[in-house]
Design a protein around this nucleic acid. Sequence first.
DNA 1: GTGAATATGTTATTTATTTTACATGTTGCT
DNA 2: AGCAACATGTAAAATAAATAACATATTCAC
Lengths: 211, 211
Amino acid sequence: MKDKNNNPISEPSLRRLPHYHQVLKRLKNNGEKYISCTQIANELNLIPIQVRKDLNITGIKGSPKKGYILTKLMTAIEKFLGWNFVNEAFIVGAGHLGQALMGYEGFSNIGFNIVAAFDSSKKKIGLSINNIKVLDIINFYSLTKRMKIEIGIITTPWETAQDTADLMVKSGIKAIWNFAPIKIIVPENIIVQEENLAASLAVLTKKLELM
Amino acid sequence: MKDKNNNPISEPSLRRLPHYHQVLKRLKNNGEKYISCTQIANELNLIPIQVRKDLNITGIKGSPKKGYILTKLMTAIEKFLGWNFVNEAFIVGAGHLGQALMGYEGFSNIGFNIVAAFDSSKKKIGLSINNIKVLDIINFYSLTKRMKIEIGIITTPWETAQDTADLMVKSGIKAIWNFAPIKIIVPENIIVQEENLAASLAVLTKKLELM
DNA sequence: GTGAATATGTTATTTATTTTACATGTTGCT
DNA sequence: AGCAACATGTAAAATAAATAACATATTCAC
């Protein structure tokens, strides 16, 4: 991945940035003003150089011997990750997992907002979870178009996940966050982030077995 | 990562195996007997050579011109991933997300079983979700020891995630699946699988921004 | 039967990521 | 003021993963 200035951004680095931010938040409450890569690395069991390289992609500059100004660093990460403005999303599938995401308080801190949920089940339609209304899936297309929503979350059963993805693409969704346990196939200009529990579990149990 | 015979197993390969299995399941219902890497690759928008190399770590042998016997391949993946015997886990934190995991039907297909849940809130203790009882966290230590549970799932708020991890380590848990949005720190002989929504979202929104 | 087509399996190359090494710049102490 | 300590930033090396190239084997068509 390349940013606007053609500097490379590696996906692993991107994934680590929220961790750094979380550590900084804690250290800020301790009253620290400056923070060094070494300190962050110690907190997270990483090595300082990796932290330094990761932070470097946000454009932050530190001072030798002192490190980074904590608040400036936090702001740099927030800005780089786009947490300072809100990304709106629709979620399809108001089952257990969908409701868990709707109820997740942490999203507001990272500029993410689930605007509405959609389901096809009469039992779900009309519910309101954490102030997010569950609407009839029938309305997904028109509402997505009208509100220009660009992010779709799939929390349906696997049987309907691909159909949901197709609907999302047709409706103008540009990025899909897929929690269903199948890999969805979409045109290559659509961004997909797969969140597959079976995959994670495969890694965990294999490591356990080989211990 | 190395297997028992010192062959390398890459984590990305491991994560892709469940996807292959899911495709095979579908194709089996179509009545296919043989399946080639090319077909699997087409289904998943991958390239044949990657599929072939991934399948190779399971030890499966295919026939030139025909491919792999579908059922044998499925069995090989299942065996390699340990889906043929059951991994038991305890979950701590019976909130939205914890309940979503307890209610997730897909785990039984992949040899995973959440035996019991634990929480400290009087409101949660005593509940039963999908036949999984929510017990008092007070009993976690003794029950883990007695039942020799090796996998712990953390779905608590971030404030108590590290304490929960410490409790798990003290109780003899060997592998932790962490859904709390902080990186937990554990002794290096403990396996940790982090499931961080903010990290995934960072990747998704950054790609969207740079589109 | 013979050869073209196709799929596997192995080896080599390229690319991506992590780690190491080193040079530069500040601070704070004497 | 000068020097030691330490942290940043950049360049280079090592490792890991993805991709490409090639050789081998088997089926199917003629």
